[in-house]
Amino acid sequence: MTAFLVIFESGLSLGAMYAAASIALSLVWGSIGMLNMALGAMLAIGGYASFALVEYLPVPWWLGFLASLGVGFIAGAVLYYVTVKWMYRVPTFDTSIVIATVGVAIVIENLLVKIFTAYAKKQPFLVDDGILMGSVTMRYQSLINLGIALVIMLILSWYLNRTRAGTAILAVAQDRDAAQLMGVPVERIFLLVMVIAGVIAAASGVLLTAVIPMSPYVGHEPLLKAFIICVIAGLGNLPAAFVASFVLGWFESAVSYGAGARYGFPAMLVLVIIVLLWKPYGVFGRRRVTRV
């Protein structure tokens, strides 16, 4: 019973940590066909933005959090103008963009090292307490992360399903040419998607760095895990990405608990390798669509 609770608790907090990042990754893939390798760096930007504002300005933590969303907004737009805008028509876009975003990520991370040094920092947006569940403590921070991830998912679903711009995003994702024939300005929609992803990534970055120490490279592992989650969910499938975040969180916890912490991450990677070999488009995946 204790084992179950331990795995449940740590899997839940892991899942909550990765859910928002996975959604950001999945959204961009589904609608632009872009595997955004700079997502890890965007998580770091969010974390550092909140940290810097609260640390160097007389700003309360919640304002720091909100302002970091603004910084994420700008980061998404910059990424669009530096890469996507010039590349999306190229036939090899889907692979070139991976390389381009890796390059951008390296630039951002090293800039963060220059500005903030590589030493770990502590996120001000942090709740230390927890409640006792049997013999296991459920941290409030995990519950907050879970709540915010849920809110992000709900707002995004509402936006995509209920607004005109959201429907246009889905239309572009399903058939770019047909959407253009309806008069949808594809470049504007891409910019919109990048900006939304930037905001979600920033939020996710703040949540993440509240749980693990913040360094410029803090986004590497979450990025890889978000990949795994999205591949298993089928890239572009948002609800499946959300659910898969938790399933994978529990899987990782269970492996760590049973076989030792060093096998948690490799086990996930092996899982994704198996999934890719077995189902080239992910377990719930089809080719490339955004679904909500």
């Binding site: 005109r164 429907t167 246009a168 889905l170 239309a171 399903q174 058939d175 047909a178 959407a179 309806m182 008069g183 949808v184 669509v289 679904r291």
Partner: peptide, 16 residues
């Protein structure tokens, strides 16, 4: 047509 959208949404996309 946008296969993953409803008929109604396909039509409203026409009036984008």
């Amino acid at each position: 047509i946008f296969t993953e959208l409803t008929v109604l949404k396909n039509l409203t996309m026409g009036a984008y």
